[in-house]
Design a protein around this nucleic acid. Sequence first.
DNA 1: ATAGGGTGCTAACAGTGCCG
DNA 2: CGGCACTGTTAGCACCCTAT
Length: 343
Amino acid sequence: MEQQTKNLIVGAVETLAQATGIKVVYKANVPKTGNVYPDGFVRIDYKNMHWDFAIQTKVRVTRATVAIEKTQPTLPGHDRILVTEYATPPMADLMRQIGLLFMDTAGNAYINKPPLYIFIKGNKRPENLKPAPIKRLFKPAGLKVVFALLNNPQMVDWPYRQVAAVTDVALGTVDWIFRDLKEMGFLVEMGGRKRKITNPLPLLKRWVEAYPEQLRPKLGIERFKADDPNWWKNVDIADYNACWGGEVAAAKITKQLKPEKVIIYAPEPPGKLIIEKKLRKTATGDIEILKPFWKFDHKLIHLGIAPPLLIYADLMATGDDRNIETAEIIYDNYLAQPDRHDR
DNA sequence: ATAGGGTGCTAACAGTGCCG
DNA sequence: CGGCACTGTTAGCACCCTAT
């Protein structure tokens, strides 16, 4: 385990013990569990009871992180706890609401094992602890490249210049990204100019966590409002050189969801659509129009549907229960088998 | 063997956004 | 509003591979 991870856990455990007066001990991994929980366990003693929580570490927590952790399978008989650097008050609330146990290095925590109940939020990030820098891989340019790679696995073997051209990123950037991928164990050189993405699903999840924070806000979001809540139902969006994302896209491919918010990806503002459907521009509108950041073709584009990975990410980023359920279905149907080429 | 272009890589530069 | 940190691009260099 990396030293950084270990420091994180030790820091959080000490802070929680100090703040509550409860006995909290960190146990590094025991061989029996293999590498299912490589970060080990925390044991909490309370009155004459004790619990062992399997640790999942995340340096930072966002709504997408919470959504992903919630859908992560657990070993039977093991409670899990998320250990993080710092949970903001809204994230603490969200984790409690979703039922995700956590503790951070600032002394915030949610632990609910009756009769033991701890919920602490609002402790500030320690002064001396500045947030860990984000790798280039998860910055806007990196996220564009990784998105293309995840959707087109064969692209790892392309020359850097070609990757740069397709992803609208500079040549030098591609090198940064590939180096990060190698360093983090997501890419290996096979020799003979062959490369391979390893651990595509963990990479996918990291992408989903970073996308809403780093790339999405840069996509020139414009918000609109419509009078008729069902205005989108009979629109063939492909006619407008655009595609549905988020809840509408999910509703169309899963037939599960009743969309409340509308996300449209369009390279140009779809003036015709806006006029025909009488969409009004307003800062609080629940219709978002944003610019796509991919150029490759994919299976659903002809139906006016964004790539499934993007739909999944937009759903997870809402942190909404129903959306997370639907996102799971999309994950199982479109994303879980990385070797399928028909995505 | 050699020329030439393609490829990976690097460091300096520029643009951006953030914070006081 | 101005300085500062950081991200991403540009330009150029060295090392291949390939065709003649």
